[in-house]
Amino acid sequence: MRTTRLFAYLQLTRPANVVTAIADIWAGFAISGTWFYLLEGGQGGNILLTKLAWLSLSTIGLYAGGVAFNDVFDAELDAIERPERPIPSGRVSKSRAAWMSFTLLLIGVLAAAQVNLISAGIASVVALLAVLYDYWGKHQNLIGPINMGLCRSGNLLLGVSVTPELLSTFWPLGLIPLIFVAAITMISRGEVHGKNRNALYGGLLMYVIVIAVIGSIPFLHNTNSWEVLPFIALLCYMIFPPLIRAIRSQNPKLIGKSVKAAVISLIIVNASLASAFAGWQIGLFVLLLLPISLWLAKKFAVT
């Protein structure tokens, strides 16, 4: 009985998705250049490793709390459209789910505060944006995708905030996850009923923009362009075939598969960014999160 209840609570947090959020932090570290010092070891490396652990814990709390609150606010709708979910099925009470969500968000902010006050501020903004999206933003055609994308942008910048002075230089990189996640959010609106071809084409265009921007980073950052190409190729392989099938069929199930592939592919987006700034070895290290997320996706729902 306890195992069943624990599984229900874990379902609320979307564990496979949480792993993609950890990849945001690791990519942020690559952008800030701190992976090099971390790998050198010594006292400085140990300090950075501790900060990496705190920020990874922070994003776990923020993401898990945010998606759990989504089910809290959607409990009545899910009772009609997705009655198998933990709250409408009665396996988790709405009040307990709300308390768990709040606690996770609080943990996210407090963990970030162990790094620096700027990290705590970014984590607080991400938490507020997540709740805003769950309660209001997801019902807005234009603002909703942007709202969700801003959550992911803040998450990437949370990783960069390990070196706060670099935020003024690299904050535009937050547009990459914003556009990618906004595309996923647009596409996902046909997951239940289908018939959203315009949104699917819009998502396709936004994916292409993201890939083009990531591919241009090595030229702007004076790094080896070939190092990012395998990651971009893998990203294309993951997101385009299921999306094209969804566009052709307008089948809600295929749209759902496209969304699932894109959510998990956020790890590949982050691996691509890491390789562009810190080399293919760091990109490959971030990519190691992908099989973990794929395994969890078989156990828990992604959307």
Rank of each mutant, 00 (worst) to 15 (best):
I217D: 01
Y37K: 09
A130W: 01
W54Q: 08
S124A: 15
W226M: 14
F277T: 00
T13Q: 07
S153E: 04
L254Q: 12
V192E: 06
Q140M: 15
S272Y: 00
P15C: 07
L294N: 05
P177Q: 10
I118A: 03
I176L: 14
Q43L: 14
N196M: 10
A297C: 05
I232M: 07
V67M: 09
M148Y: 06
S101D: 06
E76T: 12
S249Y: 03
S56L: 14
A27T: 04
S258W: 05
Q114L: 14
E84Y: 15
L132W: 14
Y207H: 08
T163Q: 11
I179P: 04
S216P: 05
G42H: 02
F69C: 13
G202D: 12
L178G: 02
A199W: 01
R14P: 13
Y201E: 06
W171C: 07
A261L: 11
L104S: 03
I255F: 04
S101P: 12
W26E: 11
G144P: 07
R152N: 02
S95I: 14
D78P: 13
F240S: 02
G65Q: 07
F231W: 04
S89H: 03
F102M: 11
L229K: 13
A113K: 10
S56H: 02
M186S: 03
W171R: 13
S168Q: 12
L284C: 08
A271H: 00
T34W: 04
P172S: 03
V302P: 06
T59E: 05
A182V: 08
V213A: 00
V259Y: 02
P252V: 07
G66H: 01
A53E: 10
N155C: 14
P230K: 10
Y9P: 09
W171D: 01
T185P: 04
T103I: 14
G28R: 14
V302W: 04
W280N: 03
Y237K: 02
